[in-house]
């Protein structure tokens, strides 16, 4: 059975596997699907954050829109009692186990959503323009290190801003093709000279 296991585990399929896109001089825009990782939806009361931080092994920020990102782990505060935790696949089981140990002292809900969404990295001077083709947010007002759930045209996304010209978005699997096609369609505007 263990042979079988290795065969299967290597055969995963994601909607945007290996997708990459660049457009415009410079280039203005580079997009790539982000690698797989472990994802958890954490729900708990704010008073339990110290405990949760311990279990996750990294600071979990208390305010909506805040994101803590260090090395390979990221914690996003999306709602008053909602966080999205991203970590390397290899830490999935240890994180789950550490949270499970705490459930007596600090009630929470930790749900593995590793396969629920896919990530897209968007960078370049045109990154904000392309997102604003369908996202109503003022992206200059979103601070570096900020995050939020929002809308991109007809899809809900979670948007992170790791750098001034670097965004990462998370979109549930079945909307990923749409979001990718939308962004690359908008990105092709950089392939033109107007006037």
């Amino acid at each position: 059975m263990s042979d079988e296991l290795s065969i299967i585990v290597s055969e995963q399929s994601n909607p945007l596997d290996g997708a990459a896109f660049a457009a415009g001089p410079g280039p203005m825009l580079v997009m790539a699907s982000a690698g797989d990782c472990a994802r958890f939806s954490l729900r708990t009361a704010k008073k339990n954050l110290a405990k949760a931080t311990e279990a996750f092994g990294q600071v979990i920020p208390p305010q909506i829109g805040e994101m803590s990102s260090r090395a390979v782990k990221t914690a996003l505060c999306l709602g008053p009692d909602e966080w999205l935790l991203l970590a390397p696949e290899s830490e999935r089981e240890s994180i789950t186990a550490r949270f499970a140990k705490q459930s007596e002292q600090a009630t929470h809900s930790l749900v593995d959503v590793s396969h629920r969404s896919v990530g897209i990295d968007i960078s370049g001077p045109g990154a904000a323009l392309v997102l604003n083709a369908g996202c109503p947010l003022d992206l200059t007002a979103l601070p570096v290190g900020g995050c939020t759930r929002t809308i991109l045209d007809k899809a809900e996304i979670i948007l992170m801003k790791p750098g001034k010209e670097h965004y990462r978005l998370e979109v549930v699997r079945s909307f990923a093709d749409f979001v990718w096609n939308f962004l690359s369609s908008a990105g092709r505007e950089f392939e033109t000279e107007s006037g």
Partner: peptide
């Protein structure tokens, strides 16, 4: 109202 595509509250 519900901030359905935001904090979901």
């Amino acid at each position: 109202w519900v901030h359905i595509h935001g904090c979901a509250r």
